[in-house]
């Protein structure tokens, strides 16, 4: 189990992570969801002993990351958001060296393991190509493959499918799930809603260095403010009169980002005509209306007041 106990990290005057508490169970896939700069990478680097927490404590399998950093490092494999691969080496050599450093595998076992993952991600034919000559997507695959080949007890992926095309993303998700099935605890930091939703057993929403919500994607959606979402696009520059919707008891919350208004409500189908009529009577120009079930994106918006784009 991984435990963050009121962990914090301060860089100068900036609190990158503040008062962060979370427990991650063994063999769980946890999606760490947050916008860029939310503190996801800092959390992972603190857990990986690269950054020392400035407050609180973090333990991995009962080992404190500050007091037992080397033991903690033996348990963790991190695939970084931006590929951290030696540009002058080919994919095979990058992975082989990583396994030399992180596993006790012999040469044959390493070769077999590297070939297995490189073939799976369709990079075997390009295994000798220097990584600095590879496309962003290929380099990202090599980065992810480091952890996939290592099969650590705790696998951390930072934006694992950034730069990848759709088939590659699906494949990577499948491989990450298989990693969990083999016994790894997986942490996936992402700012992609569908990735968090489709991959994670549980999602932790992080914003401004703080944990704002955590639960399974379904439960987060199910418990969020009514269960339905009405999206209105209103005229540019128009102040939206939220108070007009206060008369409807089914309306739980209203947020506005530029000209997009999101209304969290229940009984949306019944309420929709009344809301539109009330607003148009008061001179609100409505360009479009869309009623839908709550998505993880809406959950995120309701907790953080901002969209992930």
């Amino acid at each position: 189990m991984i435990t963050f106990n009121r962990a914090g990290k301060r860089f100068g005057t900036l609190d990158a992570v503040k008062d962060f508490s979370l427990e991650i169970q063994d063999r769980e896939i946890l999606g760490l969801l947050g916008p860029n700069g939310a503190g996801k990478t800092t959390l992972m680097l603190m857990m990986g002993t690269v950054y020392r927490p400035t407050s609180g404590a973090i333990s991995v399998d009962g080992l404190d990351v500050v007091r037992h950093p080397n033991d903690v490092r033996k348990l963790i494999g991190i695939a970084f958001q931006d590929p951290r691969v030696d540009g002058i080496l080919g994919a095979f050599d990058v992975l082989n060296w990583h396994l030399k450093m992180t596993t006790g595998l012999n040469k044959e076992e390493r070769t077999e393991r590297v070939e297995q993952v490189l073939r799976a991600v369709d990079l075997w034919d390009a295994r000798k190509k220097r990584t600095w000559l590879m496309s962003g997507g290929m380099r990202k695959k090599v980065e992810d493959c480091k952890v996939l080949a290592q099969r650590p007890k705790i696998a951390v992926f930072d934006e694992p499918t950034a730069f990848l095309d759709v088939p590659s993303r699906l494949l990577m998700w499948k491989m990450i799930r298989e990693l969990r099935e083999e016994g790894s605890t997986v942490i996936v930091a992402t700012n992609m809603m569908d990735e968090a939703e489709r991959l994670s057993d549980r999602v932790a929403i992080v914003n401004l260095g703080k944990l704002v919500a955590t639960d399974s994607p379904e439960r987060l959606k199910g418990t969020t403010k009514g269960g339905e979402v009405l999206e209105l696009i209103v005229g540019d520059g128009q102040a939206f009169p939220r108070e007009l919707l206060a008369q409807f008891s089914e309306v739980r919350d209203v947020t506005q980002v530029e000209n997009k208004v999101t209304v969290y409500l229940s009984s949306g189908r019944l309420l929709l005509p009344k809301i539109v009529e009330t607003l148009t009577n008061k001179g609100v120009k409505i360009d479009s209306v869309h009623l839908k079930e709550v998505a993880l994106e809406d959950v995120f918006l309701s907790y953080t007041g901002q969209r992930l784009e």
Partner: peptide
Amino acid sequence: MSFSATQVKDSNSL
């Protein structure tokens, strides 16, 4: 792709 059951032991035996 499928993984062998040697996972995790590799890291711990390092």
